[in-house]
Amino acid sequence: MWGDLLMKRIIILTLFIIILFSPIIAHAHGAKIEYNANMSYELLAKYDSGEPMANAQIIVYAPDDPATPWTKGAADENGRYSFVPDFSKKGMWTIQARYAGHGANINIEIGEEASLAGSTGYTWLQKLIMAASVVWGMIGTALFYTRRKN
């Protein structure tokens, strides 16, 4: 009787694990397309008068290292400057334009919807809660079936 019970428990747990990880197994036999959309941001720097900030110095700061410029460049004669951010760096990007004592800045939020490459972005606490929930669910399921089969 204990042998049967143990065997049934093992079968139930095995089935549960197969169901839990089935998407991974399915992907192992599928095709995969990866893409990176090189979306660029075009900026226009102007003075209060509406005149373009021709040849303005441009400094771009990424959210992961706000103290160090991510890149530097210069606007063209029409005050235009374009750049392609690293979309894996989610958060507030800051761009400054400076010329001859005049300055302006703009903040651009790059979040999940704009993130076209990179990891899931879950924090370790979120991952821990998810893992704990899965373990708890497995234990609960196993206990439920164990009771009925006895």
């Binding site: 606490l125 821990l128 809660i129 704990a132 373990v135 234990i139 009771r147 006895n150």
Partner: peptide, 29 residues
Amino acid sequence: FLNFKEENTMKKICFLTALILISVLVLAG
């Protein structure tokens, strides 16, 4: 379907697991 001894053991496992999980989450927070 369960005898009294098995039922108590299951309850203990259940309670201890819940306790460990809650403790880990609270400490982490």
